[in-house]
């Protein structure tokens, strides 16, 4: 097995959200070599070759991979943290196993900003999504805390173009499931 063990070494409440936890874990193997392969298979990650580091969101959790350690923010509790660390371990081992059939990707892919996303939203501040403004919806969408389906206006014929762009962005971010919506047409299934 490429990565045998992950050991938690630090845990503390999140600074921004004290109801959640942040942590540092050590990895038993240097994982920098696997990062370009991870970058090729994960669409929602940011790979920094110079670091090196590899950053992605696992739902609402922010995960950073470094050569000898993993950091995570916004985990629910230690059980949740361990589950995600085990998932990361399995994913790294799986990608390592299949590396011969993966073309490594060294490019630095960056996420769109909240302002860019705001630009593609209806910008009516209708509050139907539960947020006060479209900008706050954009921020939560980026964090994975809101799904695109929350924006009702976007799914009206008037916003067909923006909807197409937003569905592509959401898919690229790795938030593939838009609750209650057909992923191809973008229309509600019920």
């Amino acid at each position: 097995m490429f990565l045998e063990d992950i050991t938690l070494t630090f845990i503390a409440p999140c600074i921004a959200d004290p109801e959640k936890i942040r942590l540092i874990a050590e990895v038993s193997t240097d994982i920098s070599g696997v990062m370009p392969y991870l970058n090729a298979v994960m669409k929602n990650a940011t790979y920094n070759r110079k670091g090196p580091s590899f950053t992605f969101m696992k739902e609402f959790r922010l995960v950073n991979l470094y050569p000898g350690k993993i950091t995570m923010a916004k985990a629910l509790n230690t059980t949740d943290a361990w589950q995600v660390l085990n998932w990361i371990k399995d994913m790294i081992n799986d990608v390592y196993e299949k590396r011969d059939s993966i073309v490594p990707n060294y490019e630095l892919r960056s996420k769109p900003t909240a302002l860019q996303i705001y630009g593609w939203l209806p910008r009516k501040n209708c509050k139907e999504c539960g947020e006060v403004t479209c900008l706050s919806f954009a921020v939560k969408l980026l964090l994975g805390e809101k799904s695109l389906g929350g924006c009702r206006l976007l799914f009206t014929p008037e916003y067909a173009e923006q909807r197409k762009t937003m569905l592509e962005i959401v898919a690229a971010l790795g938030y593939e499931t838009v609750e209650g919506l057909d992923s191809k047409t973008g229309y509600r299934t019920q």
């Binding site: 004290p18 109801e19 509790n77 230690t78 059980t79 949740d80």
Partner: peptide
């Protein structure tokens, strides 16, 4: 252990 700031028992399992 975690989520001590909450006045109520956390909703997440297993806590």
């Amino acid at each position: 252990g975690g989520e001590s700031i909450l006045e109520h028992q956390p909703d997440h399992l297993p806590d």
